[in-house]
């Protein structure tokens, strides 16, 4: 059993678990699946700075932060006790593209050749980690949700604004992966 869990999961199994989070949260406490809200609650808790947008009772939404704590805990367990030693299996076409970026190490889920502390203060590191992170935080809040809140929770409830948001996430991602990332890796 443990050996089966340790293998990379088939997409249908992973999708099933992630999809079941929607009814699990609803039935446990009428909670709506959504993860970018946690970033908003952290702002409201730590740096509200009298900004009206952060002036609400974040304590009522604290479940969301517990959920996030669980994600950190679960990912720690998966990475330390349920991991398999093999390289991440990536398609050849993508490997060819990534080799042009200087990425050849597939031993971790992230390309540690790029995402490491030593690279943080280089131009490439700042763009990928700092600017990239800023866009994730700013964009999800402006869009009113992320992949979980819109693409999974919103679409599960057949909300057309969530479909608009999801299409825009994908368009942004296509532009970024095929035009912006190649430029970043070429010039920095």
């Amino acid at each position: 059993m443990l050996e089966i869990i340790k293998q990379p999961w088939h997409w249908a199994v992973g999708g099933l678990f992630i999809g079941l989070t929607v009814p699990a949260l609803l039935i446990l406490g009428n909670k709506k699946f959504g993860l970018s809200s946690s970033l908003k609650h952290i702002c409201a808790m730590c740096i509200p700075a009298s900004i009206p947008f952060f002036d609400y009772d974040w304590k009522k939404e604290i479940w969301n932060l517990y959920f996030v704590v669980g994600i950190v805990f679960g990912s720690f367990i998966a990475a330390h006790f349920l991991s398999n030693p093999d390289d991440v299996i990536v398609t050849e076409a993508t490997k060819t593209t990534l080799s042009q970026y200087g990425i050849t190490d597939y031993s971790h889920l992230m390309p540690t050749e790029v995402f490491n502390w030593g690279n943080l203060l280089t131009m490439k590191g700042l763009l990928l980690m700092v600017v990239g992170g800023f866009l994730v935080g700013f964009g999800t809040r402006y869009a009113g949700g992320c992949t979980s809140g819109h693409s999974i929770m919103g679409l599960s409830n057949l909300q057309w604004p969530s479909l608009v948001a999801t299409i825009c996430f994908m368009v942004g991602g296509f532009l970024s992966a095929n035009f912006i990332l190649p430029l970043i890796f070429k010039h920095f």
């Binding site: 993860l35 946690s38 950190v72 999800t140 992949t147 368009v171 942004g172």
Partner: peptide, 30 residues
């Protein structure tokens, strides 16, 4: 949902993460 969605999409492909996976990447040791 359009403007923010596009900006988030750009960040998603750059960082390889939406907000949930950010926490999971940290928990995994990155």
């Amino acid at each position: 949902q359009i403007i923010g969605g596009l900006l988030f999409g750009i960040g998603w492909a750059i960082t390889g993460a939406c907000p949930g996976p950010l926490f999971a990447q940290i928990g995994s040791g990155f």
